[in-house]
Lab assay of single mutants.
Amino acid sequence: SEEELIEKAEKLRKEFEFIWNGIRFIIRENADEIRRFEELLKE
Rank of each mutant, 00 (worst) to 15 (best):
I19C: 13
E15G: 11
D32L: 13
R24Q: 02
L12P: 03
G22L: 15
E4M: 09
R13C: 14
E10L: 08
R28M: 06
R24F: 13
L12F: 06
K42Q: 09
L41H: 01
K8R: 06
E39A: 09
E38P: 05
L40T: 02
L5S: 04
K42D: 06
F37D: 00
L40E: 02
E3L: 09
E15D: 06
F37Y: 04
E10S: 09
I23F: 05
I23W: 08
W20M: 01
E15M: 15
L12W: 13
I27G: 01
E17F: 11
I26Q: 01
L12S: 03
E15V: 15
I26D: 00
I6D: 05
I26A: 00
F25L: 06
I19G: 00
R36A: 04
R13E: 04
E3D: 10
E17P: 00
E38S: 12
L40Q: 02
I23P: 00
E29T: 12
R35T: 02
G22W: 15
F25C: 12
E38V: 14
I34N: 02
E43G: 10
N30D: 03
E15C: 15
R13P: 06
I34L: 08
L40A: 02
R13I: 11
E10Q: 10
N21W: 14
F37M: 05
A31T: 07
I27E: 00
I34E: 03
K42C: 14
G22E: 04
N21K: 09
N30W: 15
A31M: 12
E3T: 07
K8I: 13
E15L: 15
E39Q: 09
L40P: 00
A9N: 06
N30H: 12
I34W: 13
F16P: 00
N30P: 04
R13K: 06
E10T: 08
I6A: 06
R13V: 10
K11G: 08
K14I: 12
R28C: 15
S1W: 13
L40K: 04
E4K: 06
R24K: 03
R35C: 14
F25E: 04
A9F: 12
E2R: 12
I26W: 14
L41C: 14
F18H: 02
D32E: 06
F25H: 02
K42Y: 13
I27H: 00
E33C: 15
R28G: 06
R13Y: 12
E29Y: 14
A9Y: 12
I19Y: 04
E39K: 12
E15Q: 12
E29P: 05
E3M: 10
N30A: 14
E7V: 10
E3N: 08
F16D: 00
F25A: 13
I27F: 10
E17Q: 12
E17M: 13
E4V: 07
K8F: 11
R36L: 10
F16T: 01
E10A: 10
L41D: 01
I19R: 01
W20E: 00
E4N: 08
I6T: 08
E17D: 02
I34K: 03
L41A: 03
S1Y: 09
E3S: 11
F37E: 01
I34G: 04
N21P: 01
I23Q: 01
I23Y: 01
L41K: 01
R28H: 04
W20V: 02
N21E: 03
I34P: 01
G22P: 00
L41Y: 05
I27S: 02
K11N: 05
E43Q: 09
A31I: 12
N21T: 09
I19E: 00
E29F: 15
F37Q: 01
K11S: 08
R13L: 11
G22T: 14
W20Q: 00
E7K: 05
E4H: 05
A31D: 04
E7I: 12
E43T: 08
K11I: 09
I27K: 00
E2C: 15
G22I: 15
G22M: 15
L5Y: 07
G22V: 15
E39D: 04
R35V: 11
S1A: 09
R36F: 11
E17N: 04
I27L: 07
S1F: 08
F16K: 01
A31N: 04
R24T: 03
F37N: 01
E2W: 14
E15W: 15
I6W: 10
R28W: 13
R28V: 03
D32A: 10
F18A: 05
N21S: 12
E15F: 15
E4D: 06
E2Y: 12
E17Y: 11
K42P: 02
K11A: 08
R13A: 10
L5E: 04
L5M: 04
K14G: 03
L5N: 05
W20P: 00
I23H: 03
G22R: 14
E3P: 05
R13G: 05
E33Q: 12
I26S: 00
W20C: 13
E4Q: 07
E33G: 09
I34M: 05
N21I: 14
E43C: 14
L5C: 13
E15I: 15
I19Q: 00
L41R: 02
D32T: 08
R36W: 12
N21Y: 13
R28L: 06
I26H: 01
S1M: 11
E2I: 13
F25V: 02
R36S: 04
E33S: 11
I23R: 00
A9C: 15
W20A: 00
E38L: 15
R28Q: 03
E33V: 14
I34H: 02
L41M: 05
E43R: 10
D32I: 11
I19P: 00
A9P: 05
E39W: 12
E29D: 09
F37L: 09
D32G: 08
S1Q: 09
I27Q: 01
E38M: 14
I6L: 12
A31W: 13
A31P: 03
E29L: 14
L40S: 02
I26F: 13
R35F: 09
E3R: 09
F16H: 01
N21A: 13
E43Y: 13
N30F: 15
W20S: 00
F25W: 13
I19W: 06
F37S: 01
I6H: 11
A9W: 14
I23E: 01
K14D: 03
K42F: 12
F16S: 00
E29K: 11
F25G: 01
K8A: 09
E38F: 15
E7H: 09
R24A: 05
E4P: 07
I34A: 04
K42I: 09
I27D: 00
I19V: 06
L12Q: 04
K11Q: 10
R36K: 06
K14Y: 08
E33N: 12
K11L: 11
I23N: 01
E7S: 12
A9V: 10
I34R: 02
L12Y: 07
R28K: 05
E10G: 09
E39C: 14
E3V: 08
E33M: 14
W20I: 05
E3Y: 06
K8M: 12
K8D: 07
I26G: 00
E39V: 06
E39G: 02
N30K: 08
N30M: 15
E2G: 11
L5H: 03
R24I: 12
R13T: 04
L5W: 12
E39S: 06
E10C: 15
I27T: 01
I6P: 08
R24C: 15
I23G: 01
I26Y: 03
I6R: 10
L5A: 07
E43V: 11
I6C: 13
K11R: 07
R28F: 07
L40W: 12
E4F: 10
K11E: 06
K42G: 07
E2D: 08
G22Q: 13
I26N: 00
E43H: 10
R35E: 04
E33P: 08
S1N: 10
K14W: 14
R28S: 06
L40R: 03
I34F: 07
F16N: 00
E15R: 14
F18N: 03
L40N: 02
I34Q: 02
L5K: 07
E3A: 10
I6V: 07
E38R: 12
W20Y: 02
I19M: 04
L40V: 03
E38A: 14
S1G: 06
D32K: 10
E29Q: 12
S1C: 14
N30I: 15
I26T: 00
F18S: 02
E39R: 09
E10Y: 06
W20K: 00
D32V: 10
R24S: 05
N30L: 15
E29W: 15
I27M: 05
R24N: 02
R35G: 03
F18Y: 05
L41I: 09
F16G: 01
A31V: 07
E4I: 10
D32M: 08
L12H: 04
E17S: 10
E10F: 05
N21L: 14
E43I: 13
E43W: 13
E33R: 12
D32R: 12
K8T: 09
I34D: 02
F18L: 08
F16W: 13
I19L: 06
E43A: 11
G22C: 15
E15H: 13
F37W: 07
E7Q: 09
W20G: 00
E7M: 07
E33W: 15
I6F: 08
L41Q: 01
F25K: 05
E3I: 10
F37T: 02
F37A: 02
F18Q: 02
L41T: 02
I23K: 01
E33F: 15
